[in-house]
């Protein structure tokens, strides 16, 4: 529901002015677990329909390989974590009319962005972890795609789900910006009829500050949301953190609630830092 601020109408114009109606699509991978690409692969029948509507020219995990191809829509999974990726994302941007970052890594830096807090340098970590550190060439930080190039649409989630990805593609095929609903997870949780785990069990649920989209999956199974979809619009992290104090969480535990999968988002980063210190 970002209807009031179409993020990059110019990119949409670019996309709509493509020479051929059938868009060329690429799926690029950066630092990630490949889980978001599975949103395409697990889609089954919808993937066949998709292949009738677009030309998938580059999607390493599924087969087609043409990383240099000029495309109309590029999906990018993963954070920017190496010097090579920094160059490559700029190349991807140059050759794509409309760029969509998918999943927590691409939109917020992901789990690996936890290293951005650490005083140990990336080099120290690689020395400690890898048998052959000489082969590792890593940046000090893992950062979202939007910190490097212009992103035209962000799809959140760890991982994103097929519903979001296909709804976005459908909207772009119609020539309009997809509506992204940024409401809190609680809205979705109540529509689904879950019993609130925060109120009925005292679990430190992140739902009240988390971007909906997963269908309130975790509360449906009786556990607290850990905010894999990142911050919702207008998140009151202070009030939720204070509620967590009331539920008996220690400051460090509260910091960990915010510093997890989407720790590099401004809202979660600052909320966690308040309690980490």
């Amino acid at each position: 529901m970002s209807a009031w601020s179409p993020e990059h109408p110019d990119a949409l114009d670019q996309l709509n002015q493509r020479p051929q109606p059938r868009p060329k699509v690429a799926v690029h991978k950066f630092s990630s677990c490949d889980g978001c690409q599975l949103a395409f692969i697990n889609a089954g029948e919808a993937l066949i329909t998709l292949s009738q509507l677009v030309d998938i020219v580059h999607f390493a995990e599924a087969g087609p390989l043409d990383a240099e191809a000029e495309v109309d829509i590029a999906f990018v999974e993963g954070s920017i974590s190496t010097p090579h990726e920094k160059e490559r994302i700029e190349q991807v941007r140059r050759q794509s009319r409309f760029l969509v970052s998918i999943g927590a890594c691409a939109t917020s830096g992901g789990l690996q962005a936890l290293r951005n807090f650490n005083s140990h340098s990336a080099e120290q970590w690689t020395q400690a972890v890898y048998a052959q550190p000489a082969y590792i060439d890593s940046l000090e930080t893992a950062t979202p795609v939007a910190e490097h190039v212009k992103v035209d649409l962000e799809l959140w989630g760890c991982p994103v789900n097929a519903r979001q990805v296909f709804a976005a593609i459908r909207a772009l095929l119609f020539g309009v910006m997809p509506l992204i609903d940024k409401d809190k997870l609680c809205v979705e949780c109540k529509r689904r009829g879950n019993v609130c785990v925060l109120v009925a069990k005292g679990e430190p649920c992140m739902g009240p500050v988390t971007h909906l989209g997963c269908g309130a999956l975790c509360p449906a199974f009786g556990r607290d949301c850990y905010a894999c979809f990142g911050p919702a619009e207008n998140p009151n992290t202070h009030a939720l953190a204070r509620r967590f104090v009331g539920l008996g969480l220690l400051p460090e535990e509260i910091a960990h609630r915010f510093h997890f999968i989407n720790s590099h988002t401004p809202a979660f980063r600052s909320a966690g830092l308040e309690w980490a210190e």
């Binding site: 809190k184 809205v187 009240p208 009030a239 204070r242």
Partner: peptide, 13 residues
């Protein structure tokens, strides 16, 4: 406004 999470639970129930 400082305490409210703007989460909509009150309206849903």
């Amino acid at each position: 406004g400082m305490r409210c999470l703007s989460c909509g639970n009150c309206t849903a129930v």
